[in-house]
Computed example of a mutant assay.
Amino acid sequence: MTDIWPAHLFLVGCGNMAGQMLARWLDCGLDPSRVTVLRPSGRPVADGVQVVTEYPASLAAQTTILLGMKPYQLADIAGLLAPLCGSRTRILSILAGTPLADLRAHFPDAGEIVRAMPNLPVGIGEGVTALHAEAAVPATSRTEVEALVAPLGLAEWIADEAQFNEVTALSGCGPAFLFRFIDAFARAGEAIGLPADKSARMAMATVHGSASMAAKASESPAILADRVASPGGMTREGLNILDANDRLLKLLTDTLLAARDRGQAMAKGQ
């Protein structure tokens, strides 16, 4: 793979999401000697990756910092990290509910700041990462960021930062909602009489195959659903339940609204 990697990558925190991102990058050819992880526990991350428990005295000029800790830790961490940031330091933040204005206020001397909202499948290269950058970030830098994110899956630039909570609700939180659907789908199969283990395997395979088919199809999922459903048949009868009074649409809309509203509250420090 072409060298798309930062000269040095400094991760603040390496929890579930940041850890998935790093694991994928390492699998795709990122040299672990270019990576430093700040982790208070000191626990190893991957072979060749340096783990430190305290901030270094300085950072290389072309370091990309990935902020992967909890959002509430921002102020405390910035107090120690901001003095290490210069005009050639790029910050990539995956902190939910933390707008660019807040990030810039905490890192006034840093170079480019980009928000990213990945979802969990980035670890297998099938994720979605929403991106939003400060207006001053040039096209060349946006291209570099997009190239870095590309091994993780779909990279989608969001022009209006005000929509970031909506995007996070859909794609960032979405895997959890779909995991819940798969679980409920399997338990519903059990409820109508199938053995639990068989229902779980069949539900998982059905979701996986259908998602792959939808991703490769030229038609929309709505059209695909109608093509499966013969008039008067079993599938149509089941769809009638999901479609009645837009109950499925309403349920999912309420789910996304709840997630979005929580993101807005987090941005206000609530």
Rank of each mutant, 00 (worst) to 15 (best):
D27K: 09
G29E: 11
G29K: 09
L30P: 02
D31L: 03
D31V: 01
S33G: 13
R34W: 04
R34M: 04
V35L: 01
T36Y: 10
V37Y: 05
P40S: 14
P40V: 07
S41T: 14
G42N: 11
G42S: 09
R43H: 15
P44F: 10
V45H: 10
V45W: 10
G48E: 01
V51Q: 03
V51C: 07
V51S: 04
V52D: 02
T53C: 10
E54L: 05
A57F: 14
S58D: 13
S58A: 15
S58M: 11
A61K: 13
A61D: 15
A61S: 13
A61M: 13
Q62T: 14
Q62I: 11
T63Y: 05
T64N: 02
T64E: 05
I65K: 00
I65P: 00
L66Q: 08
G68F: 09
G68Q: 10
M69H: 13
K70R: 13
K70S: 05
K70C: 05
P71M: 12
Y72A: 15
Q73K: 06
L74M: 09
A75Q: 13
D76R: 08
D76G: 11
D76M: 08
I77Q: 03
I77Y: 05
I77N: 01
A78S: 08
A78W: 00
G79E: 06
G79T: 03
L81Y: 01
A82T: 02
G86V: 14
S87T: 14
S87L: 12
S87K: 11
R88L: 13
R88D: 15
R88Q: 15
R88G: 11
R90N: 06
I91K: 02
L92F: 12
S93I: 10
S93V: 07
I94N: 03
I94H: 03
I94Q: 04
I94W: 04
L95N: 04
L95G: 06
L95P: 05
L95C: 08
L95A: 08
A96H: 13
G97K: 12
G97F: 11
G97I: 10
